[in-house]
């Protein structure tokens, strides 16, 4: 239990929460416009790989980041096209895209570099960590909150931005209108298709940020299966957040908490497989508890 007293532990909570927070926001913005974006897992895999490859070949961090974001977003737009224009079932289409991405990324890595499963021959750049001027001098808080990766700060800032956008702006209003009732939105002149393409674009972009954080943030290497279901976990954290990205931040931190425990126990020589179970178990338990709470709340609401 002494691990909870270590500042390092809490630092790791934020580090592990970052990619899931990006993905949670990705799930949220699509969800609010009425689309279940199951393709985040694939978008993260594609973005993480293409980012590493581009930064390795160009030797430039920003080129890598841009290419990663571009490919992940393009991937999501293809999914959006199939869901909206080709009228594919969104669950099945998402699964198909993820399947193609998980195999396709391994195939692409092998074809381009000859590496099998891990990008060993590529020297990728990584996004730097930054110290926050005043914050870093505050004793406990500084140790936990300062010195994170740039993308971690970006994730938490974007969560606040997304909250404001969804609640206060005209665009956010349109998104919610489309999500709640596309027919009603259509009747007041909102272009449902266009709004959904816009949200899917943002969704892909956010998921891709999560992807490049995985391979160009804390570590600068791509490994097959490194996304490890974070795109799916985001579906749970999004459901827990119920459309509120500040709650989404909290839900992602719950996942980060589970991951941090796992990392600590592994360092204490516990069996790695038993330990890897913990974050998934934690997220299932939290998700179930939140669902119970929402169900209870809705019932109360109905009885009034």
């Amino acid at each position: 239990m002494e691990m909870f007293l270590k500042l390092d532990f809490w630092f790791t909570v934020f580090r592990c929460a970052t990619p899931v927070l990006f993905a949670t926001m990705a799930a949220m913005i699509a969800d609010r416009s009425g689309i279940l974006n199951l393709g985040m897992e694939g978008a993260m895999a594609i973005a993480s790989l293409s980012g590493v490859l581009a930064s390795g070949f160009s030797g430039n961090l920003l080129v890598g980041g841009f290419v990663g974001l571009f490919c992940g977003t393009l991937f999501t737009m293809i999914l959006a096209y199939f869901i909206m224009n080709m009228k594919a079932n969104q669950v099945i289409a998402g699964i198909a895209m993820n399947l193609a991405a998980s195999g396709g990324s391994i195939f692409a890595l092998y074809s381009i570099t000859g590496d099998k499963n891990t990008s060993n021959s590529i020297q990728s750049k990584a996004f730097p960590s930054v110290e926050i001027p005043v914050l870093k001098d505050i004793p406990v808080l500084g140790d936990i909150l300062s010195g994170h990766n740039v993308l971690t700060y970006l994730a938490f800032i974007l969560a606040i931005v997304l909250f404001i956008v969804l609640k206060k702006t005209k665009f956010g209003f349109k998104v919610r209108a489309v999500g709640e009732s596309p027919e009603a939105a259509e009747s007041v002149g909102i272009k449902v298709h266009r709004v959904r393409y816009q949200t899917m674009f943002l969704s892909g972009l956010l998921a891709s940020f999560g992807g490049i954080y995985m391979s160009m943030g804390y570590i600068n290497r791509w490994t097959a299966g490194m996304i490890a279901g974070r795109g799916y976990i985001a579906l749970a954290t999004n459901a827990m957040a119920a459309g509120n990205s500040l709650l989404g931040m909290f839900a992602s931190l719950l996942y980060g908490f589970g991951s941090s425990i796992a990392i600590y126990l592994q360092n204490m020589n516990m069996d790695p497989y038993m330990v890897t179970m913990i974050p998934y178990l934690a997220i299932i338990v939290f998700y179930v508890l939140f669902s119970l709470y929402y169900r209870h709340k809705n019932k109360q609401h109905e009885s009034l």
Partner: peptide, 12 residues
């Protein structure tokens, strides 16, 4: 792994 790509396209 090209098979996964083929499978994905067919499902889609």
């Amino acid at each position: 792994e090209i098979v996964s790509v083929i499978q994905g396209i067919i499902i889609l």
